[in-house]
Nucleic acid binder design. Structure first.
Length: 210
DNA sequence: AGCCAGGCTACCG
DNA sequence: CGGTAGCATGGC
């Protein structure tokens, strides 16, 4: 689908680089045009945790949960595992679904530790409780810099509103089918995958304002 | 005062 | 397979 590449350039021109994924230690959180992050295992884990905490949740609330974990010194796999379930739930309460997300974080933490820095296969991520396709691909793309295009609810809306697909089609196509469309339309490279996904979210938010 | 937010699981036909 | 209830808090 050729229109996909055109849309990318259009959105990039209109909004500029978005600098995803946000990190707590950066005052502005976002880091446009800096594709060197994450640089440490700590930052990598923070991205993974954020990907879980933001499931069906506004980023602002996910960020509060991350800050809650950070403030209590729980933002690491070891500390998450050592802390009690209740302490984790309490720290992440603002992000909602706190009981489920506490379990997801702790199960992911065990998995993360066993990786010892290696990049997980997508199938391994998907086999974890609480990690679906979008969360897995967000982790791979932003935390591990693997070229996997992330599809979310916004993607479908923008495709339809930009006239690239009939609304019924945008809805009917599976996650993997949509992902393939984007991955075939773009150069197989991490920065454009990161930017395009973030730009689609940006666009969808602008759209929602009216 | 509802509706929605950077989903996923479990269970249904 | 596709469709849907349940999970929960905070912003608008």
């Amino acid at each position: 689908m050729k229109g996909l590449l055109k849309l990318y350039h259009k959105l990039l021109k209109e909004y500029g680089p978005q600098g995803w994924w946000p990190l707590l230690r950066l005052p502005a959180r976002y880091h446009p045009s800096d594709y060197s992050l994450p640089r440490t295992s700590k930052e990598r884990f923070e991205i993974c945790a954020g990907a879980i905490l933001t499931q069906n949740t506004a980023w602002k609330n996910a960020e509060r949960a991350l800050e809650g974990l950070s403030k209590k010194g729980l933002l690491s796999p070891e500390r998450l595992l050592r802390a009690g379930r209740e302490a984790v739930e309490e720290a992440i309460r603002p992000s909602g679904y706190y009981a489920q997300k506490a379990r997801k974080l702790r199960e992911f933490a065990r998995f993360y530790k066993e990786l010892r820095g290696r990049t997980p296969p997508r199938e391994a991520l998907l086999s974890l409780w609480g990690i679906g396709p979008e969360t897995a691909d967000s982790i791979l793309l932003y935390a591990y810099k693997e070229p996997r295009f992330v599809i979310d609810a916004y993607t479908r809306r923008v495709l339809a509103s930009e006239g690239l697909l009939p609304p019924a089609e945008a809805k009917r196509l599976s996650y993997e089918e949509l992902q393939l469309l984007f991955e075939e339309a773009l150069p197989r490279s991490v920065p454009p995958y990161q930017e395009y996904h973030a730009l689609l979210v940006r666009r969808a938010k602008e759209l929602a304002k009216r």
